[in-house]
Each structure stands twice: as structure tokens, then as C-alpha cells.
Amino acid sequence: MDFILRLVAFIFIIYVVQSRESIKNIKSFKLNEKMIYDCVDIYKQPSLLHPLLQNHKIQMEPSFSISKPKNNIRGESKSNKIIECPNGTVPILRNTKEYAANAQYWAEKHFNPLTAESHGTHFAGVNSQGQGYRGLAAWMSLHDLNISKDQVSYTNIYVGSGTNNKKNSIQTGWMVNPSLFGDGRTWSYGFWKGANGAGCYNTVCPGFVQVSKTDMLSMPYPYPRKGEVGVYTSIQQDKETGHWWTTDVRYLKPDVNVGYWPKELFDLIDKSVDMVGVTGAVQSSPSGISPPMGNGHLPTKNEDESARVKSLVIITSDFKLKGSDKYKLEKILDSDKCYGLRDGKTKYFLKVSNLFTYGGPGGDSCGI
């Protein structure tokens, strides 16, 4: 009997020690006081708890690759690894109550390309409307901005569809939002709206499935930066699964497939989208003062001095990539008092220089 008790006690001690070791060995990365990432088993990430994803099988990699206009994406920004989780795990953000509350607050104010409602929001960009798009990719110049805690400035690519009361959309790009991220750095981000109006920033609520062990949907860009620096990113529907992947396209390096928004999250874009576009956008403070957009300056004839978007490609209904010169792009600019939008060079997409330049200083006379 004593032997059995000692054996049970020994097994219990071993279990406790192993449990403590497993907790101690969980890798964590603190990017600032608010943003802490833990390396979590890829099959136990919180997004899989979403009611619509109970039977979801993780797709480890997409069935496509983006054709790179290599001559025009020399500016890289997310190639320096700041996180690298062990094999079989992925970086997942610890969601604090403060972060979740801030994310919800800014989500309600976020620019929606599918609606004319834009109180306090200003934007400048281009889009294409039609039927059957499968995604897009674009290079966006990257900038640092002086933004107050009650303002936001960002640039993104997006896909979406809308009917009378339903709107589905996905966006990804770069953002300066001190209130959300806890500092004034420029961060990558993702934003989605799905079935029943549900959706949010990054991974604050279940939905986005993280696949990369090094690149997160939301991470700060390396700083300081020299020369022309930008991010070439894509949102593309997978032909085999229907999921919407986001990929960091790299110059002379392998692309990084960050992860995807499962098709089960959506009730309008599970098969395709009706609109794709690229835009710069800002959200003014409650006082009515609008923040800078782009690089904080109005675009000029000297494109190197302006915030710019280039190498825009649109993915057709049959999953082929076409240059933006094959489409009629609608320009959108809601406040020419504070912001500008200019055409860039529009050569064939594999040699395109600039599609458009945009931006401005903002101020207190931009309107509502």
C-alpha cells in the first residue's frame, strides 16, 4: 500500500513539474506594454473557438502564389523577424479588456468602402466595382506620422460586397493608432466584417486563422527606415477552399503567407467580391481636427516626395492576375481642402511605376 501511495505521489510530482516546465517554456514576446504575443499551438488558437469554425480544418498554405513585379517592390518592411515561434505554434496576441474596448471603439469608426457614411472620416484612393473579383495586391509606401491618441491614419487594400443591409469586407495594410496599439509606431493590421455584421480588428475576436510562425496580422514595422520603403501585400481567395488569404510579398525572398479569414465567416463573399480597392483614410478627433494622411503632405509632381501606391493587380473571377490598367478605376477623394489624389504612371503592370499618389496634412477645416 505504501508503495502504491509513493508511486502515485511520484507521478503527481512529475506531472506538476512537467506542467510548470510547459508553462515556463511557452515563448512570449512583449512588443510594448499593451501588445504581448504568446506562441500557441496552431490547433488551439482562439479563432477556432468561433461558432462557425467548430468543424474547421486548418489550411496550412494556399494553393496559389502572387506574380511579383520585382522591379518595383524593392522597398521591404516586414522582413526583419521580431518574433519566431517554435514549430507547431503561432504568435497569438493576449487580448486585454483595454485592448478589446479600444478595438471595438475604433471598429465602429473605421472607414467602410461599401457605405457613404463617413462621419469624421476622410479618404483618398481608387476602387473597381464589378462582379466576381477574387482579390488584389498592391505596393504601398510606408510612413511615420505624428498622430494624437484620439486620431487614426491608415492605408489599406480591401475587398468587399454589399446589399441593402448586409456588408462583408476585408482590409489589410498599415496604420498609426496610438490608442489601439499603445504607441505611435506604424503597425500592420487587418480588419473584417462578416455575417450578421460581426467582425473586428486583427485577432481581438475569433475569426482570423494565423498560420505563419513569424509574421502576425498586426506587428510594428522596423524603424528607422532608409530610402524607399513600403509593403507589398495581397488579399486573395483560395481557389480550392474559398478562404481569403493575406500574404506579404517579398523582393528576392520567399513570400510569407500570414494566414486567412475562413469563408465560413461571411455570407456575401464566400464565393467572390464586387469591389476591390486601395485607399488612404483618417479618423478625426472629437474636436474635429483631422490627422495627416499618407506621408503628411499633399502629392506633388515629384512622386518621390509623395505617398504612393503602385503595382496594383486585380485577381479575376477565373483566378488570373490582371494589371490595374485593364480596369476602369474610380477615384475617391472626399476632402480636397486637406488631402489630395493624383494619377501616377500607368504602364503595363509588370513595369508600372506609380498608380497614384495621395495624402495631406489634415487640419481643422477638413469638414465632417
Results as ranks from 00 to 15, higher is better:
7 L>R: 08
183 D>I: 05
42 I>N: 10
113 P>Y: 00
58 I>M: 11
4 I>N: 11
247 T>N: 14
65 S>R: 11
338 C>H: 08
1 M>A: 13
326 K>M: 03
48 L>P: 05
217 L>Q: 12
309 V>T: 07
148 S>C: 01
181 F>V: 11
191 F>M: 00
28 S>L: 01
32 N>F: 12
100 A>W: 11
295 N>G: 06
282 V>F: 10
143 H>R: 06
283 Q>I: 13
257 N>I: 01
219 M>K: 04
330 E>V: 15
193 K>I: 13
260 Y>M: 02
45 Q>W: 14
145 L>C: 07
135 G>I: 01
240 E>F: 06
298 L>W: 05
320 K>G: 04
161 S>H: 07
313 V>C: 11
77 S>R: 07
214 T>F: 11
302 N>W: 00
185 R>N: 12
108 E>Y: 06
259 G>R: 09
347 K>A: 10
209 V>D: 02
300 T>Y: 03
277 G>C: 08
63 S>Y: 15
26 I>R: 15
35 M>A: 11
330 E>P: 12
126 V>H: 11
147 I>C: 02
157 I>H: 01
267 D>L: 12
20 R>H: 03
79 S>I: 14
242 G>R: 10
52 L>S: 10
157 I>G: 00
87 N>K: 13
132 G>E: 09
211 V>I: 15
107 A>Q: 05
362 G>F: 10
248 D>P: 01
316 T>F: 03
42 I>G: 09
135 G>K: 03
196 N>D: 15
